[in-house]
Computed example of a mutant assay.
Amino acid sequence: MTLIISWIGVDDKKDGKEISSIYIASDSRYTWGNAGKFDYGIKVFGSTKHPEIFGFCGDVLFPSTILGQIIPQIDNGILLNDDDNLNEKNNKVFDFIKSSLSTYPKDFLGNSFTILHASRFKKEFKLFKTSYDGNKGIKNEEITLPKESTRVFSGGSGKSEFDTNCQKWEDEKHNNYRTSRAVYHCLTETLKEIKDPRTGGLPQIVGLYRIENMRLFGIVEDAKKYIYGKQSTEDINSRSIEWRNENFERVNPDTLKILEGAQRQPS
């Protein structure tokens, strides 16, 4: 069933605190009961043309199929308009999910799923959650975002282990208290020690900043590069995306060392 999380980064501005970034991250494991696992499954998505990112947990086939339909329609200017506000954009996304679900064969749908949708309009960010329960049906709601850097959502079968591990980073005495890197530290450590057999593999992350659209992050772990959980052994154009190490520091993909000018972070 997986682990999915979301967190925000907040900056101090002269007019007060403002959200500067939002991230959705997940593990990379797909499972089929006890029959098998696949640790290269895509669980986070984003638009390269509009400031929209997504992630899911729970049932795999329906959310991955629907997001695979939504993203191209956003990228091609079909589903959303440039002047749609945050609620209008999410309402259109939810209507698409709901109408698709109404025709989906229920015998092939898992008991539950959650789809996160983070969006930006001008300088404002919002996070929405669409959840389905076999007994209660489907619903959509906004997740309130505070004015401090912190995790704002965790879900899936790995949630309890992740939440327990995060307690040490949420101690005011910790070096990384109230930082976005603290949430990522917790994610990487949880995945290394996870007991839940349905959660595993390397982390995968998409994010939104104040400018531009979805950012896909490559992961550097043990001097190796990974994208969506899969090691990048092919001859790829590594410089086309950002790369982060386990401290969430920006990394040069050629040398696998901290990027020149990047701030080192306490562990």
Rank of each mutant, 00 (worst) to 15 (best):
T114A: 11
T114I: 01
T114R: 08
T114C: 03
I115G: 07
L116D: 07
H117I: 01
H117Y: 15
H117G: 03
H117C: 04
A118Q: 07
A118D: 14
A118N: 05
S119I: 12
R120L: 05
K122D: 11
K122F: 08
K123L: 01
E124W: 00
F125G: 01
K126R: 07
L127I: 13
L127H: 15
L127K: 15
L127F: 11
F128T: 12
F128K: 03
F128I: 09
K129M: 11
K129I: 09
K129G: 02
T130G: 05
S131Q: 13
S131L: 00
S131P: 05
S131R: 02
S131M: 09
Y132P: 08
D133M: 05
D133Q: 03
G134L: 05
N135C: 01
G137E: 12
I138E: 11
I138G: 02
K139I: 02
N140R: 00
E141T: 08
E142R: 13
T144Q: 13
T144M: 14
L145E: 11
K147L: 15
K147Y: 12
E148T: 07
E148R: 13
E148P: 00
S149C: 10
S149T: 14
T150E: 09
T150L: 00
R151F: 04
R151L: 05
V152N: 03
F153K: 02
S154T: 13
S154Q: 07
S154M: 04
G156I: 02
S157P: 10
S157I: 02
G158W: 04
G158P: 04
K159G: 05
S160M: 12
F162E: 11
D163A: 13
D163L: 14
D163R: 01
T164W: 01
T164C: 10
N165G: 03
Q167C: 08
